[in-house]
Design a protein around this nucleic acid. Structure first.
Lengths: 336, 336
DNA sequence: GCAAGGATTTAGATCGATCTAAAAAAGCGG
DNA sequence: CCGCTTTTTTAGATCGATCTAAATCCTTGC
């Protein structure tokens, strides 16, 4: 009486075979219009719901993809996730989401879980410290993977992310123009590819302007407000303390702002501060944050395109889609 | 050579039957220790990966649950999602995430997709304007559902969310204590249950203090900064304009802050402003936002507990777990 | 040494779709 | 009306696990 309606029931009701009903489901060109309509009517009438699990098992495709990020609480990833989810929805895919919290063991477990659930592909922002063992497993599983925002040294995958070096270069030039001669790089974890690239960009700006750089001006920190807060204190305590910093990202920059203010320093007025990402709050905080805008929506689009393409053509050469960022000058870098 | 390893291969290798291997997978008590170890060794040796899709099909359980929210970009939902994802991970479930963007058609499609993917349950923050048709479908599907943050009138489900009325009541009392006598309610969409409750709480505070209320002091808006920005303008343009507002949430409050500042008004100093949620940024913006703190982590925990319980005991009576919020007084409500 | 009873193991059906290869039906020119 | 092509439809195997119910294998106690 109350049992589940399957394709068999629909087929019986419409007077066709299970196979034909299945073809209608996937609106194949093969089936005659009249039949299609008859079957669709039966589906509606019986309240048929497609069991994609069964389909996945047979077809070796789940029509879902996994998004593995470090922390969805970071507005940059949240915006990325929205962009991705909405595109996937359009393409008929569902989204499985996981946060690694930058813990590699958790990451390993989550990746395994996703693979076991037969995701058709993975958008992956690897946790800091991701080992080649993890990467090997991914390629063993033959899972289509697009790396986002961070790369893994020695691993070959498609990649979508911002041009970190150029962004940091622009930020560096800007701070130098503003008269700063001691510029630090604040936050982020050691080893992260994005961090390295951003630091390199800054250094490039310094070199081309003949400005000094000291290793102690690169300070690591967790990627969080608290991380930024403690990191800026470390900077301020140096002898010949820098007068400006480029931050690993906006979240770190916000923490740094708090740190500056707690010491009675006004960002912009007394100290140059530039972030990275341009999350929505960057325009909102007072003083408003100067930052390097990388557009999560565009990165999301690029990543999805790469992934869907890779799923269709597993053998094609690896591609990087790099977005050129834009420097948004607001108040924290301008002394009035 | 290169083909997939299935349970059959493992069983053969370990010299047991498929059924036994399956029992080992689910670490059943039935199987002898020696056998278990042998099978596990074979699994490791052969690089077996569990195909949960197949298991889902047979067992009618997918070990995944769906989270449907309006907008993961809202930090409140982002924090909620993190909390939920991490608990689900502990319980061996995976998370499917969708954003409805408060569009009911999109919501319907997403719900259908989740059901087709056999999610074992749903954490659901219904879009504004969710019809009983949608709700009927959910109960037709017999999907365990826990509503979060918003309720649906006339629908019976478990619910986890904050005590909106009490939170708003505290906020209202606080603003009255600060000397305000014309207090508006800002933002949120018409019809949302959470909005209604918050407005009621505010009105209760007004009534108990014998303070005036006018219908024109309730202004609807999209739940976004922009929404808050335009809504506060509307308030300020009234004759006998209010001197304080309780905002639907922090995001709206941030928009309102911008609106005030663009008119040369300093929140706190010249105008009382209270938010709702206590997202991380509330403490960070200058002036810092007074707000009603509802703890996403706790709500997430409550919701998960309710859902897992409902999955196990589908027939049990419906429950509401309501978190008591806390008023965090910062700067935007205090005239120094 | 044997039956009872518990502990382990297993054969075979099954979940609900898709795939393959082949059959049936329809269209068509002569 | 016949063969031939093209269009539609289909039977039956299959994906990789779990479930059911029954078969074996051990212990014991006597």
């Amino acid at each position: 009486m109350d049992k589940k309606i399957t394709l068999i029931d629909v087929a019986k009701d419409a007077g066709v075979s299970r196979a034909t009903a299945s073809l209608v489901l996937r609106n194949s060109e093969l089936v005659a219009d009249a039949t299609r309509e008859r079957v669709q009517a039966s589906m509606k009438k019986l309240g048929y719901v497609y069991n994609r699990t069964a389909a996945s098992l047979r077809a070796h495709r789940s029509q879902s993809i996994g998004l593995v990020v470090t922390d969805i609480t970071n507005p940059f990833f949240a915006e990325l996730a929205v962009s991705i989810e909405s595109q996937l929805d359009d393409a008929g895919y569902a989204l499985m989401l996981s946060n690694t919290l930058d813990q590699t063991e958790k990451q390993d477990r989550l990746l395994r879980a996703m693979n076991g659930r037969q995701v058709d592909g993975l958008l992956f922002c690897p946790a800091e410290g991701t080992t080649s063992e993890t990467v090997d497993k991914l390629s063993l599983w033959k899972l289509p993977v697009v790396l986002i925002t961070r790369e893994i040294t020695g691993a070959h995958y498609d990649y979508a992310g911002p041009d970190n070096r150029t962004g940091a270069l622009m930020a560096g030039r800007h701070l130098i123009e503003q008269g700063h001669r001691r510029i630090a790089f604040l936050g982020g974890k050691d080893g992260a590819s994005a961090r390295k690239e951003r630091l390199n960009g800054l250094q490039e700006a310094l070199i081309e302007a003949g400005v000094e750089w000291r290793p102690s001006w690169s300070v690591f920190s967790p990627v969080s407000r608290k991380g930024g807060y403690t990191a800026i204190e470390q900077i301020l305590d140096l002898t010949d303390a820098p007068t400006a910093v480029l931050c690993y990202n906006d979240v770190v920059a916000f923490g740094a702002m708090l740190g500056l203010q707690s010491r009675g320093l006004q960002p912009g007025q007394d100290f140059g501060l530039v972030g990275f990402d341009d999350i929505e709050d960057a325009a909102l905080v007072r003083p408003a944050l100067t930052t390097v805008a990388i557009k999560p929506k565009e990165i999301g689009e690029a990543a999805i395109n790469l992934l869907l393409d890779r799923i269709e053509h597993p053998g094609k050469p690896y591609l990087s889609k790099v977005q050129t960022p834009e420097l948004i000058v607001r108040e924290t870098s301008i002394a009035r």
